[in-house]
Design a protein around this nucleic acid. Structure first.
Length: 301
DNA sequence: GTTGAGCGTT
């Protein structure tokens, strides 16, 4: 109750980082994840038993043991396996890469300050890994930045890391994403397993932040979408499709309400809704789309 | 000479 900050580290022997607590003495999982992307909880060594203990987590809120965080160093938990760290998860996905041989692709960098140059971008992103291309998109006439650009890394691991976090560049928070044109091109012949879940029976008081905080315990959340006006459901997207698939069919309790998790259906399931003038039947078209790398514009797949 | 969600002239 007394501390404004609690000390958190990836490992007991590593340099701890101070994480702010809330007014009621709790700590938001999102506060931890802001410094340790992908974190799903905390643990600590109980001074009496010398055993590791989990910190109580309810709906994205971490509660102090014995109502007092004390002076302990708390250790970050990562999804799937408490002993497994983010690097090891990345290593696991590196196995997939070997199999499917995933190349790196250009990443779009959104939210750049107007003044940021390509040299600035290169200097910043080189701190993550070797950079092979940077671009700042500019108006052809004036030369003014359009506020976004592109970056390409040599290592796929670097790309994964960069996408997973936000970036403070010249005083503004920026996001790096796979460009729309490249989404799902990375693994063309893999069957599409959605990273997005449908959350049914939502109540109107559930906010995107609350849903994000809740679902973070299962894995890294990359997007939360609540249709407006209220329609009693939401979409949550995870970084890992396995996390999304594992939750399907579950009934989960959020803010005391039972919500139902199922697969997110594509928003558009009729080709002719997208291309009303396209000749011929839809069967061959559908087959074509199954094999294509096309992503439905602004849909929730 | 302004701006702030988005998606790439060469």
């Amino acid at each position: 109750m007394s501390e404004l900050y609690i000390r958190v580290a990836e490992d007991e022997n590593e340099e701890p980082m101070e994480i702010p607590s809330e007014d009621d003495g709790t700590v938001l999982l999102s506060s931890v994840a802001a410094q340790f992307p992908g974190a799903c909880g905390l643990r600590y060594r109980n001074p009496e038993s010398q055993c590791m203990r989990g910190v109580r987590l309810m709906e994205g809120v971490l509660h102090a043991p014995e109502n007092d965080w004390g002076n302990l160093v708390y250790v970050v938990n990562y999804p799937k396996d408490n002993k497994r760290k983010m690097e090891e998860i990345d290593a696991a996905s590196a196995v997939k890469i070997k199999r499917g041989f995933q190349k790196t692709s250009d990443l779009i960098v959104l939210g750049l300050p107007w003044k940021t140059t390509e040299q600035d971008l290169k200097d910043y992103f080189t701190t993550f890994g070797e950079v092979i291309m940077v671009q700042v998109k500019r108006d052809a006439k004036t030369g003014n930045s359009k506020g976004f650009g592109f970056v390409r890394f040599t290592e796929y691991e670097t790309q994964t890391k960069v996408i997973a976090q936000r970036h403070m560049i010249d005083g503004r928070w920026c996001d790096c994403k796979l460009p729309n044109s490249k989404v799902h091109v990375a693994c063309p012949d893999e069957p599409m397993r959605s990273r997005k879940i449908f959350v049914g029976r939502c109540t109107e008081d559930m906010t995107t932040d609350e849903l994000r905080q809740y679902f973070m315990q299962y894995g890294e959340v990359t997007d939360v979408f609540i249709p407006k006006p209220f329609r009693a459901f939401a979409f949550v997207t995870f970084a890992d499709d396995q996390v999304a698939q594992a939750l399907c069919g579950e009934d989960l309790i959020i803010k005391g309400v039972s919500v139902h998790i199922s697969n997110a259906e594509p928003k558009h399931n009729n080709i002719h809704q997208l291309f009303p003038n396209f000749p011929g039947g839809s069967a061959s078209l559908a087959a074509m789309f199954d094999r294509s790398q096309y992503q439905f514009p602004s849909s929730h797949v």
